[in-house]
């Protein structure tokens, strides 16, 4: 086994997902199969090979720090599940 149910539960917490017991079992089996498959990358010697993050070589794209118009508060908040004035409202964070 590449991965156990405990590992999967841990990863789910990191990913902010809750999995039903049945989902957890299925996910463990499927992740195990996929991780077993991707192990084939270890057949390749990559010693001294530079990693590729972007296929097109690019460095940071800078622009002038200029003030521009934006969409405004109403537009920005139009999809808010819950709002309070000009703020997004979320469940209580600190007791």
């Amino acid at each position: 086994m590449k991965i156990t149910q405990q590992d999967v539960e841990h990863v789910a917490r990191l990913a902010r997902l809750t999995l039903e017991p049945q989902e957890l079992e299925m996910m463990t089996g499927q992740m195990d199969a996929i991780l077993g498959y991707v192990d084939k990358l270890n057949e390749l010697d990559t010693e001294g090979i530079e990693p590729t993050a972007h296929a097109v070589p690019m460095s940071n794209a800078f622009r002038a720090d200029e003030k521009k118009s934006s969409i405004g508060i109403e537009r920005a908040l139009q999809n808010a599940p819950e709002r309070d004035g000009s703020c997004y409202k979320v469940p209580k964070v600190i007791e």
């Binding site: 990863v11 990191l14 989902e23 499927q30 996929i34 991780l35």
Partner: peptide, 21 residues
């Protein structure tokens, strides 16, 4: 957690889990 568990389908959850791992 409840939002993401209810909102994402199986394949999306699978890929998020693999990527997080």
């Amino acid at each position: 957690q409840q939002t993401r568990a209810a909102g994402f389908g199986d394949e999306v959850k699978r890929r998020i889990m693999l990527g997080t791992y």
